[in-house]
Nucleic acid binder design. Sequence first.
DNA 1: CTGAAAGCGCTTACAG
DNA 2: CTGAAAGCGCTTACAG
Lengths: 344, 344
Amino acid sequence: MASDASPAPTPVTLREVAAAAGVSVATASKALNGQGRMMAETRERIRETAQRLGFRPNSLAQSLLRRRSFTVGLLTNDTYGRFSLPVMSGISDALVDKGVSVFLCNVEDDQRLGQLHVEAMLDKRVDGIIATGKRIDRHLPVDLANLRIPVIYAFTQPDPGAIAFVSDDAGGARLAVEHFWRLGRRRIVHFSGPASFAVVHARAQAYRDVLTEKGLPAMEPLLGSWSEAWGHEAVKKLFDRKGEKPDAVFCGNDQIARGVIDALRERGLDVPDDVGVIGFDNWQIVAEATRPPLTSVDMNLAALGREAGLTLLSLVGGEPAAPGIRKLPCRLVVRQSCGRPPGG
Amino acid sequence: MASDASPAPTPVTLREVAAAAGVSVATASKALNGQGRMMAETRERIRETAQRLGFRPNSLAQSLLRRRSFTVGLLTNDTYGRFSLPVMSGISDALVDKGVSVFLCNVEDDQRLGQLHVEAMLDKRVDGIIATGKRIDRHLPVDLANLRIPVIYAFTQPDPGAIAFVSDDAGGARLAVEHFWRLGRRRIVHFSGPASFAVVHARAQAYRDVLTEKGLPAMEPLLGSWSEAWGHEAVKKLFDRKGEKPDAVFCGNDQIARGVIDALRERGLDVPDDVGVIGFDNWQIVAEATRPPLTSVDMNLAALGREAGLTLLSLVGGEPAAPGIRKLPCRLVVRQSCGRPPGG
DNA sequence: CTGAAAGCGCTTACAG
DNA sequence: CTGAAAGCGCTTACAG
């Protein structure tokens, strides 16, 4: 016997289930939760009754009692969402299976909004909070210190002493430069974004380190903006001058790489035959639109989100976790902008 | 006297406030809610006590009583988020000021996930649900009929008889074609995405309608994919053949337009002098990277989200609303890909 | 094996 | 003007 097509205007309560099954609410509760001991038939009868009436326990009441709401707050300032969204969906996916729901809080860069959302979360008794953003070197406009509930930072600047997950930018850069090396490229340059970004320095340093380890001459990275236009401009700067030209360009993001590839083609250079190009972010829609499709470093943001979500849950469950910043590995997604190894 | 730097491990309750102020919890409740009548001084003393102790009412308890949780569920299948994200932030912004929080539910295209999230929302007693997605002609993998709480569809295929907000695609296409007309362009073509998308037909029909109204010969739109590559290919198809060339291309999205602009430049045609180009979606990061920057139709998705959020709230508040699909106007964002009017 | 009682934190008639 | 009581929907010791 299925439940009605049009549901009752008000949800069925445990009290109604108990009445229908001819037991007390206490017994009904225990039957449905598998608690206490009672005759198997009683338990089964109550279960069937609940099922038949379409009973679903009111989470609000359960939360009040259990002191656990099975909700978490997710703060972000990334309205555009290119970085936040994979993180967010990773978090959401990790939590939905545990019955935990996620409040989406868009705080922009607005103190008032930040405060408003944090207070709303606290009032709604979220079990924990995850902060995420569009830059790992900027703090959200919120005060998350001394909150009484666990807080995790994911892809945003953490408070000192907090637990944070970020991508391993240096490791990602290494992946790119070492890939070029393995392909036999020896004149590798690096174009990146503005010096005001911490990741620009982390990636540039890793780039220098690998060159040094391989005994190649250090070339200073060219810093500019995160745009295609800067990719064009950087190519002009470097390929206009006399002397040996680079045979590989490692770019700080995919848009720069896109500009580089277009600029190289415009001056008659072949990618990957003359010059190999690698981007960063693995922004699929851009990486697949370049000609040829772009090899790029992926920060594994969805995995980062999963990790953050799972860690928050274990904190909520009372398990301890060491504070600090955990760097999660990137991976290189190989497409066609670098060619094959010399003998390959 | 501010609250402690490190908060109590457990939030302060109304009972504690009442005790500290020397009144009953009932009186404390009424004082803080502005209910009932009591001496102004009593009310003020209770307020101060609450303030001093950092009292914040437990929303879970309030919700249980009020039968209103001040939360709504937001379902989406747009993991990538290009369309969903503006809608979502519009919704969130509209609701946060009313104290309503939003549960983010990523249902992908997975029935199981959809069911899981809807049940979680119902169990958590959300006041309403908003469904959004990446296509207005596809239904989310969830059953939202007969839910007992209000449901609004925003930028996704609604159930029959439901309330839905979508962009006015035909109106947006008109904006583009009429803009070309005003600029004196008379040989206007239309490149768009796959025929399997409803918006492709809506926009194509509006394109034909405007041409007919203006007494221009109808040219059949060229349908392909949503990619830059298709923009290139379509240019090749149309500009390779003999006879008069188009002087304006209205594109079904910004990526096609990007491909068109690049392809035109590659064959020595000037944009906008020889050919004007308009895109659709106003995907800022693409529109601003084309050379010249792209004029594009914006679907006003954030406004659509706001509208959806506000309407849901009024339904929750018991106000009636007529079912049906409401088309919200697009706007044309003029950049430099169309040039100026003949005399301008 | 089952039920009456107390309670989570709050609000709202209803008495005094 | 203020407080004791009942109750939102559930769970969990504690009696029987």
